[in-house]
């Protein structure tokens, strides 16, 4: 085992973490807006976002990433950098899934809760902010963290299309010169686990904590 290779893998891990965090932030913001649009009383908005979700969920992430990377060039614009293209594709991808997950969580807060707040004269935004979101948050935690773990692993697809130097990409490069796939892909797998496992544990802790506040 060569220490330079381990450093390369750690650099790859950093790349994975950066891409994941960017995806959580942008995908989370866009996904939240999608969830709100999905439950909008205006039919054009809710149906429109429905179509957006259908298209993105029906497309393999690999293809989406290819479109984001090569697409701008085809139309004569400057190409995006690998990180930009990967972030863009993963943001669209995760916004569709998170939007749908969170829509379900918002709607699973019973309708009478909306009505009770409405009858007290509480406006739509305040109703969302003070009555619905706090209840939806608790329901949303486990599936959201589950999806975050998937995103971390799915960043590896960036290695296949856009050539962004994340963990899988660096493991592949090292393997090409060492022919020790078991060793280096094994270490990469452990690194993925080291990032994802604490997230899952944290999710359970958070769930319990929110439950206490909700007694």
């Amino acid at each position: 085992m060569n220490s330079a290779f381990i450093i390369s893998l750690l650099q790859g891990l950093l790349g994975t973490v950066i891409l994941s965090i960017l995806t959580f932030i942008f995908g989370g913001i866009l996904g939240f807006l999608i969830a709100l649009a999905r439950i909008s009383p205006v039919a054009v908005i809710s149906r429109g976002t429905g179509v957006y979700i259908e298209i993105l969920q029906g497309m393999p992430l690999l293809v989406l990433m290819g479109l984001c990377f090569y697409g701008p060039g085809i139309f004569g614009y400057d190409s995006l950098s690998p990180l930009q293209a990967a972030t863009f594709a993963l943001t669209l991808y995760s916004s569709a899934y998170l939007g749908e997950i969170w829509r379900g969580c918002l709607q699973s807060v019973a309708k009478p809760q909306w009505e009770a707040a409405e009858c007290l004269g509480i406006g739509r935004w305040h109703r969302m902010r003070h009555v619905i979101l706090p209840q939806a948050l608790r329901i949303a935690t486990p599936p959201t963290v589950g999806f975050m773990v998937q995103i971390i692993k799915n960043t590896s697809i960036a290695s296949l299309v856009v050539g962004y130097a994340e963990l899988s990409y660096n493991a592949k490069i090292i393997n090409n010169s060492t022919f020790q796939p078991f060793l280096y892909f094994g270490i990469a797998a452990l690194m993925y686990f080291a990032v994802c496992y604490p997230l899952s544990v944290q999710s359970r802790v958070l769930e319990r904590k929110l439950n206490v506040a909700n007694r």
């Binding site: 009770a116 707040a117 509480i122 305040h126 009555v131 209840q135 608790r138 909700n214």
Partner: peptide
């Protein structure tokens, strides 16, 4: 009833006066 389950009794009653 439709009380807000994440709020205490006092908070349930205070919410609308505060917001509206």
């Amino acid at each position: 009833y439709n009380l807000f389950p994440h709020l205490t009794v006092a908070e349930n009653v205070m919410l609308a006066p505060r917001l509206v």
